Simulated assay, not measured.
Amino acid sequence: MIHAFFNIRLDDAYLPERTGQLVRDAGEARAVARTIIRRLVVQHGGEPRLLNAVMAVTDADGASILDLSFFEALYVPVAAPERAGPARPPCR
């Protein structure tokens, strides 16, 4: 498990997260960052400046895990999750 911190860089400002969150790996950190970004955009009414922001995910020592731009989180599609269980037969 990684103790990840989801910090925000916007223009010249750096907004550090103080509490962090445990994630399994960088893939889960990316998914959490994407969720946080989407909620922030909804919460702040689609403020256009947010498209220039970056979520800088770091570990407890401050080392970079990944950077995710708000633009990428909002507009770059992600793969659909795999279905669990058997596929349904086609409708007739």
Results as ranks from 00 to 15, higher is better:
27 G>H: 14
23 V>T: 10
30 R>C: 02
31 A>W: 08
71 F>N: 10
27 G>R: 15
41 V>Q: 05
33 A>G: 02
34 R>I: 13
55 M>R: 03
87 A>M: 05
62 G>K: 01
46 G>A: 08
18 R>H: 12
50 L>G: 04
36 I>W: 05
26 A>K: 09
73 A>T: 08
70 F>H: 03
30 R>K: 15
83 R>C: 04
67 D>R: 10
19 T>F: 15
21 Q>H: 13
37 I>M: 08
44 H>Y: 15
44 H>D: 13
63 A>K: 04
30 R>S: 13
61 D>M: 04
19 T>C: 10
84 A>C: 03
61 D>K: 11
86 P>L: 11
55 M>I: 01
79 A>N: 03
48 P>Y: 10
21 Q>C: 11
67 D>G: 10
31 A>C: 04
43 Q>R: 12
56 A>T: 11
51 L>V: 04
34 R>N: 07
31 A>M: 14
72 E>A: 15
41 V>N: 07
87 A>Q: 11
31 A>F: 08
70 F>N: 01
64 S>V: 13
19 T>P: 01
46 G>K: 04
54 V>W: 02
45 G>V: 13
35 T>F: 11
79 A>D: 09
48 P>H: 08
71 F>M: 09
65 I>S: 01
85 G>R: 05
44 H>Q: 12
54 V>Y: 01
65 I>W: 01
51 L>R: 12
81 P>W: 09
71 F>V: 03
81 P>L: 02
21 Q>D: 00
45 G>K: 15
60 A>N: 04
34 R>C: 08
61 D>Q: 15
52 N>V: 03
71 F>S: 12
78 V>N: 02
55 M>W: 03
84 A>D: 09
82 E>A: 11
40 L>C: 01
77 P>E: 08
18 R>V: 14
53 A>C: 03
36 I>R: 10
75 Y>F: 15
75 Y>D: 02
53 A>Y: 13
46 G>R: 04
55 M>C: 14
72 E>Y: 10
30 R>G: 07
40 L>Y: 07
46 G>I: 08
49 R>N: 08
62 G>R: 07
29 A>N: 10
82 E>R: 06
86 P>S: 08
38 R>K: 15
20 G>S: 08
23 V>F: 10
76 V>M: 12
80 A>W: 07
46 G>C: 05
65 I>G: 00
71 F>R: 12
47 E>S: 10
69 S>D: 04
68 L>G: 07
45 G>H: 14
18 R>W: 02
86 P>C: 00
65 I>H: 00
34 R>D: 07
80 A>S: 11
34 R>Q: 13
32 V>Q: 12
20 G>H: 04
56 A>L: 09
88 R>P: 07
56 A>E: 15
73 A>Q: 10
54 V>G: 02
58 T>Q: 11
26 A>F: 02
76 V>H: 06
53 A>I: 03
39 R>G: 09
85 G>H: 05
53 A>E: 05
84 A>W: 06
41 V>G: 04
69 S>P: 05
